[in-house]
Simulated scan of single mutants.
Amino acid sequence: MVLPIWSLGVKYRFHHPERMPQAGAFVLSPNHYSEIDPIVMGVASWHLGRLPRFLAKASLFKIPVAGWFLRRSGQIPVERAGSSSHAAIRAAEELVEKGRMVIVYPEGSLTRDPDLWPMRGKTGAVRIALERGIPVIPAAHWGTQQIMPRYAKKVSFFPRKTVDVIIGEPLDLSAYEGKPLDQATLLAATNDLMNAIAALVGELRDQPPPAERWDPTKHGQKETGRLDG
């Protein structure tokens, strides 16, 4: 019921859809700049042949329509406080063990970059990939801000919006395989992932991404709503 209604308001343009694996476990890591991103990428994944499973902030489950979709499609609510980030990683790993795809937003929350470029990432996505020996695939979307701008509380479907989605090549993690998964290794691999995501966003926007990722801690901003650790 939701998908036909969603399709009335959102048109997808897919770039390199052939890069989406059709079998086996992997981590899909997109950029994140709107509260409605999980639905945008969830529907996109369904169109590309994979049933989406992802970590979503618990607050999203309270949004009309969006919350219903998240609950019905078996997504994982993540609370903000306490050890939720570690619990979320464990839940994602359980999905991986079942050979499923899991969407993990490496930024952990909506980007703070003023121009909506990907910001500094957290290590959860690459940690899962390296620990489990599965691919991590960067992805990006652009146009979602026309449906629901960053920090907005309402959605707009009409006139119909167009969202571009691009799937990247699997991230080359060969330089990190067999190494101790210490913080230095995980941060280096995460930096590679964020560079790959930013390059995909730049391809969709037809602009070069910033040479350096936005770091909220350097701009006096508090990071909230983490989706990984």
Rank of each mutant, 00 (worst) to 15 (best):
L116V: 12
R120K: 15
P170M: 09
S156N: 15
D113R: 00
D113A: 14
R150L: 06
E97F: 03
E169C: 06
A152S: 15
I103N: 00
A139T: 05
G121F: 08
R120G: 09
P138F: 14
K154I: 10
A152L: 04
H141L: 04
P114Q: 10
Q145W: 09
P159L: 09
R120D: 07
A139V: 05
R160C: 08
G133K: 01
I137W: 01
V163A: 06
A152E: 03
I166G: 04
L116N: 14
I103G: 08
R127K: 14
P106W: 08
R127S: 13
V136Q: 02
I137Q: 03
S109C: 08
I128M: 07
K161D: 02
S109H: 13
P114H: 05
G133W: 08
P135Q: 10
R112D: 10
L110P: 02
V102A: 05
Y105V: 10
K122Y: 14
T111D: 09
K122H: 15
P118V: 09
P106M: 12
V165H: 03
V155S: 13
R132V: 07
W142D: 05
I128N: 08
D172F: 05
V165N: 06
G133M: 09
G124E: 11
I134P: 04
E97T: 15
K161T: 04
R160L: 09
R132E: 09
W117V: 09
I103V: 14
R150K: 15
E107G: 06
V102L: 06
D113T: 08
A140R: 01
D164G: 03
T111P: 00
R100V: 02
V165Q: 06
T144Q: 11
A139K: 00
E131D: 10
R112Q: 15
L173E: 08
V165F: 07
A125Q: 05
P149R: 14
T123F: 01
R150C: 04
G124R: 04
V104P: 00
I166H: 05
D115S: 13
W117Q: 10
G133S: 12
R132I: 01
A129P: 00
G143Q: 06
P149H: 12
S156I: 08
K154L: 13
P135W: 13
L116R: 07
V126I: 15
L171G: 02
M148K: 04
G133R: 03
R127W: 12
D164P: 02
A140P: 00
W142Y: 13
I147P: 00
V155R: 12
V163Y: 11
Q145D: 11
V102T: 13
G121W: 02
V126R: 03
A139W: 07
A125F: 00
V163D: 02
W117R: 02
